[in-house]
Amino acid sequence: MSMHCIKVENVTFHYNLQKQEHTIADLSFTARRGEWLAVVGHNGSGKSTLASLLVGLRMPSSGRIYINDIELKEETKWELRNQIGLVFQNPENQFIGTTVKDDVAFALENQNMPYDEMKQRVDRALAMVSMTDYADYDPSRLSGGQKQRVAIAGLLALHPDIIVLDEAMVMLDPKSRRGFMSLLDELRKQHQLTIISITHDMNEAAAADRILVLKKGKVMEIGKPGQIFQREERLDVPFIEALRRKLKKQGSTIPDKYMTEDEMVWWLCR
């Protein structure tokens, strides 16, 4: 197996076949196993469309997508859905089961899995997201953050390799957001998960391994946070980078290169 668990090659997609305008235009990138890749871009830049292409909800007009070296096609998409899962923005709309554990079991039922194996996998998935105590809860009694944990458990039950998050943290308050992120990061490290997270939060993006900047359906840039935020013209930058630029403008001797928070604190306290 190659080290690229996702390979996107020259993918083009448009919703309206009459219009020439492409929602996704000649897009190519790869993601490594165990990597956290943040996808950023303005509203309408095609991020959600990209997510739906990656999980086979839509098929590219041209180009190819490979998941673990298998090409994603109508014939292979059902099989590949064990390997790649998607969490949507609104936790309410993706809760299918009537209780937490029913919801986690949904994907397993679809595999026609025997009860005993389902039970075991559901219990384990709930434990992985620390929601065991809520197994019998009704979704309306859960907070937004808890609902998204359940959504993750529903995917983990399938033992996937890749999880795609489409602005999954938007509806959460900052505290739940941080908890959810550190949970994902831990799961990623323990289980070699690849995470593709669509986000508007530049501080979250700064914590990713790499960032893909999408603009009008094209890859504007892809690279390490340091590289991406280095560019002066980018308006949305993490807080630390904004502070560094401000200090520089005010005549400080701070180095003219992107810094992480630790680097900045270390430099200030030198």
């Binding site: 871009g41 303005h42 509203n43 923005q89 508007h200 308006l235 949305d236």
Partner: peptide, 8 residues
């Protein structure tokens, strides 16, 4: 501002 990109 919920759900908008930072610029928005």
């Amino acid at each position: 501002g919920a759900g908008l990109d930072p610029k928005g």
